Simulated assay, not measured.
Amino acid sequence: MRGEDAVRLRPPGNAVDGRAVTWWRTQLLVTTAVPVVVLGVLGALIGPARTWLLVAAGAVAAAGLACTAFFPAWWLRVHRWEATDEAVYVRTGALWQEWRIAPMSRIQTVDTSRGPLEQYFRLATVTVTTASSEGAIRIEGLDHELAADLAERLTAVTQATPGDAT
């Protein structure tokens, strides 16, 4: 693509909602708690392997707490998104950065989803589906009202944009 039709990959301008940090931390704590509880219960019930199971439970708990303390704040700094009349831009990751762009003419569907934790924190995820082999573009950690407005706006812009969305 050259000239007026070219869409340039550029840094997106919007951060996800600050409540996403607490949402991510809660997800990590729940994910850590399951194996810690299982290992702890097994350690309490199985005599000969008790020490090793309890040590493993402690190690998993320590690693989970370290990840919970560090990663969500880091993710907030590196996750960026933006939607213009030409494209949807998303950048994730710090060490392994992924930059994705979906031109409006290629968008097939726009969906919002809210799991139980997202509902509790009043957050939502917007998924923009294209015919790309890389799969859909997901913008996680948005305020639920912003996500609904964004989905409505993207749908309207996509419908008004000429192209075959394939």
Rank of each mutant, 00 (worst) to 15 (best):
R138D: 07
G163C: 03
R122I: 04
L42G: 04
R25E: 05
T92P: 01
D111R: 11
A102N: 03
I139L: 09
P48H: 12
T109P: 01
G115I: 07
V78E: 07
L45A: 15
A61W: 11
V60D: 02
H144S: 13
I137H: 00
L54P: 01
I101L: 14
L117Y: 04
A44I: 07
A147L: 03
V128L: 03
G43L: 09
P12I: 02
S105K: 09
T130A: 03
A124F: 04
V157Q: 06
G3M: 03
D111K: 11
T127M: 08
W52K: 12
P48S: 10
A83D: 00
T26Q: 08
L42Y: 12
R19G: 02
R2I: 14
G40V: 10
I107L: 02
T22I: 13
V88F: 03
R106P: 00
T92A: 09
A102H: 02
I46R: 15
N14E: 12
A148F: 04
M104L: 13
L39T: 03
Y89R: 09
G58Q: 08
E145W: 04
L45V: 13
G64A: 11
T22K: 14
G93H: 07
L142N: 01
M104D: 00
L42T: 08
I101Q: 02
A160H: 06
F70G: 05
D149P: 01
D17Q: 09
G64F: 10
T127Y: 05
L154G: 01
S113V: 08
E4N: 08
T129I: 02
G13K: 11
T158W: 01
V157K: 03
T161M: 07
G43H: 09
V60F: 14
R25Y: 10
A165L: 05
V16K: 05
